[in-house]
Design a protein around this nucleic acid. Structure first.
Lengths: 346, 346
DNA sequence: GTGAAAGCGCTAACAC
DNA sequence: GTGTTAGCGCTTTCAC
C-alpha cells in the first residue's frame, strides 16, 4: 500500500508503463493505427478499434501527453494563468472558474501568483514559456517591456483579464475600473458627502484598485469638492488592512465624511473600525467598497458597493482564450459589466 | 504590437525558436556540450561556457521543458495539486504557498479543484498522470480505490495534506480535525453549554469538517449531554451558508445554546443571524468556528475558534513533497499544530 | 573537456 | 483501412 516502497521497486525495473508501441504490438496493428484509435481520428475498422481499446485498457495504458505535446508542438493544451494572489479577494473564484472552464475544453492550467510585481510576472512568464503553452491569461494591463516582448516572440494567444484594456496585446476581458470609481464618487457626492477619503493597499501596484481611486477622485473634482484624501497601505488588501487603514487615514484627516475602499473586505474592516470607535455609519461616515464579495451578504447594513461577477469574468476570459486558440472570431475587448449597489452604508 | 498578427505570421514560417542544436552550431560545439553548459552540469571549459551562453542569449534561446521532461522522464518538475476549492476558505492561501514553495525549488504546479467529489478527483488525477508529474499533493485522506491504484501504478511521491492520515499512502501533512472538534466540544461544555448544534456544508463530503463535528459530538457524549444536533447544508461553506444554516437549525431546535460551525466564515454568518434576530452572543447563544480566518480580526467580539496556520501547512506539504522527490528522509506523518482560541463568543 | 549515436513516445506525411 | 518513415529537442551512454 505504501507508495514509497513501490517507488523504490520501480527504480529497478525502470520503465513499466505501457506505451503506444506495446498496445499496437499486443493488438497486432501498427503504432499509427493504435494512435488513430486512441485519438479517435478515424481511419480504422470497428474491429480494429475494439481490439486496440481492449489491449489499451488491459495494459493500463496512460498516454504520454509530454510526448504528444512535444511531437505535435501545436497541440500543447497547456495554459498559463497568472493572478496577483489566490487568497482573500475574488481571484480564487476567478481562477477556479478559469480552471474548470479550460478543463472542460481539454486544457490544463499552470497557475502562478505575482503580487502585482511586474518582475515576478516576467520571471514566471519566462518559466512558463519553456513549457510551450498554447495560451496565457494575465491579470491587468500593465506589463514590463520584456513581458510584452516574450509574449510577442512566443506568438500565442494572450488574454489580459480583470482590468479592461482598450488597446490589448491580444484580447482583453475585464472591468472598467475607472468608471466604477467615478460612479461611486458621484453617488457619494449625490448623497451629500463632502470630504471623501480612499483606503487601498499594495502601493507598488498601479492599476485596478488604483484606477478606481482615480475615477473617484475625478468625480469629486468634477463636483468641485476638496480632493480625495488617500491612504495606501503597504500590505495586501483584506479585512484587517481595511481596519487599520481607516484608523491611519482618520488620524490624518479627522473630518472625512466618507471613505471609499479598494474592496469589500477592506470596507468591512472599515465598518468594524467605525463601530468599534463610536462612529455611526452612515450618519457620521459613509463607507463604500468594491467587488460584491460574499461577506457583504451577512452584514447588518447593506454595503454600498459595486458588484462584479467573478465567475462570469473567469468564464469569459477562459472562453475567449479557447476561441483564440481555435482561431475562432473573438472580440478584442470584452467588457464585463458591473453594477453599482447604492446600499445604506454610503 | 498586436500579438494576433504575429501569430498569423508565425503560422507561416513555422519553427523559428532557437533550439539547442542551433546554439551549439553557433558556438561551434556539439549539442552535448551546449546542453552541459545550459544545465551547468560540468565538463566544459570556462571559455566554452562563455561562448555558449553568449550565443544562447543572442539567439533568445528558451529551453524546451517539454523535450527535457520527455527525454529524461525522471526530470519532469511537474507537480499536481488538488484542493476542494480556491475561494472562500483557507485553500487559496494553502495553494498559493504551495505554488510559491514549489516554484522556489524549480517545480511547476498544475492545480485542480474537485469540490470534495471523489469521482472528480479521480478523473483529474487520470488527466494529470498523463503529464508524467513527479509528485502529487492531494487534499484529505479519502480517495477512491482507483485513485489509490493509479497513484500506486505511477509510483510517484504523494502528499495527502490538510487532514492528518496516520496511515498515509505515502506522506501525510495535516491537522488532527477530530481533536479540534473534541477540544472545542469540551470548551463549550466547560462554559456551561448544554444543548449544542453544528452547522456545516457539502453533505457528500465526509472527512475534514465532518471529522471535527464527530470530535465535538464525542466530547458532548463524554460529558453526558444531549447529542449534537446537526445541519449540513447542500452548499459550499461560506458566510451566507452560515447565516441560513443557523436559521434552519434553530427552526428545528429552538432551544440550542451553542453552535459549532464548519469554519469561521460560517460562524460569522451565524453571528450575523443572531445579531439580526435579537439573539445575544454569548449570553443566549455560544458561537464557535474553525480556521482562524482573516475576517475574525475585525469582529467586535473575539471569535471562539481553532486557528490553523494555512501558510505553514502549505509550506510543510510542499517541502515534504520535494524531500520525497529528492529521496531525502521525511516523516510519514507530519502534524500541523492548531491552537484553541477560547474567545468570547462561545 | 568534448563529441557521436541512440532513443524517449508520439504524430505528420506519405505510401500502399 | 493500414503501415512506413522521419523527426520533434533533448539527455543518456559511451567513446575519445
Amino acid at each position: 500500500m505504501h507508495v514509497r516502497k513501490a517507488v523504490i521497486a520501480a527504480m529497478k525495473d525502470k520503465k513499466q508503463r505501457a506505451s503506444l508501441a506495446e498496445i499496437a504490438r499486443a493488438a497486432r496493428v501498427s503504432k499509427m493505427t493504435a494512435s488513430r484509435v486512441m485519438r479517435d481520428a478515424g481511419g480504422f475498422s470497428e474491429e480494429t478499434r475494439e481490439r486496440v481499446l481492449r489491449e489499451a485498457s488491459r495494459l493500463n495504458y496512460v498516454p504520454n501527453r509530454l510526448a504528444v505535446a512535444f511531437a505535435s508542438d501545436a497541440a500543447s493544451t497547456l495554459v498559463g494563468v497568472l493572478v496577483p494572489r489566490l487568497s482573500g479577494g475574488l481571484f480564487g473564484d476567478v481562477v477556479e472558474t478559469i480552471d474548470r472552464t479550460l478543463a472542460r475544453f481539454g486544457y490544463q492550467t499552470m497557475i502562478g501568483t505575482y503580487e502585482q510585481r511586474l518582475d515576478v510576472e516576467e520571471s514566471w512568464l519566462k518559466a512558463l514559456l519553456s513549457w510551450r503553452p498554447t495560451g496565457v491569461i494575465l491579470t491587468g494591463r500593465r506589463h514590463s517591456p520584456q513581458t510584452t516582448a516574450m509574449l510577442q516572440a512566443a506568438s500565442i494567444p494572450v488574454v489580459e483579464m480583470w482590468e479592461l484594456n482598450t488597446r490589448p496585446m491580444d484580447v482583453s476581458v475585464g472591468v472598467n475600473h475607472f468608471d466604477c470609481g467615478y460612479e461611486m464618487g458621484r453617488l457619494l457626492v449625490s448623497r451629500g458627502r463632502r470630504k471623501i477619503g480612499y483606503v487601498g493597499a499594495e502601493p507598488h501596484a498601479p492599476g485596478m484598485g488604483r484606477t478606481r481611486m482615480t475615477g473617484c477622485a475625478e468625480a469629486i473634482r468634477d463636483a468641485g469638492l476638496a480632493p480625495l484624501e488617500t491612504e495606501i497601505l503597504n500590505d495586501r488588501p483584506g479585512f484587517y488592512a481595511g481596519f487599520y487603514g481607516t484608523e491611519t487615514l482618520l488620524s490624518r484627516h479627522a473630518s472625512l465624511d466618507a471613505i471609499y475602499y479598494q474592496d469589500d473586505a477592506m470596507a468591512v474592516g472599515g465598518l468594524s473600525f467605525c463601530s468599534a470607535n463610536g462612529i455611526t455609519v452612515p450618519d457620521d461616515m459613509g463607507i463604500a467598497g468594491w467587488g460584491g464579495m460574499d461577506v457583504t451578504s451577512v452584514l447588518e447594513k447593506k454595503l454600498t458597493t459595486t458588484t462584479m461577477a467573478a465567475t462570469r469574468l473567469g468564464k469569459s476570459a477562459a472562453e475567449a482564450l479557447v476561441a483564440r486558440i481555435h482561431d475562432e472570431p473573438v472580440a478584442d475587448v470584452i467588457e464585463v459589466p458591473t453594477r453599482l449597489v447604492p446600499g445604506n452604508t454610503g
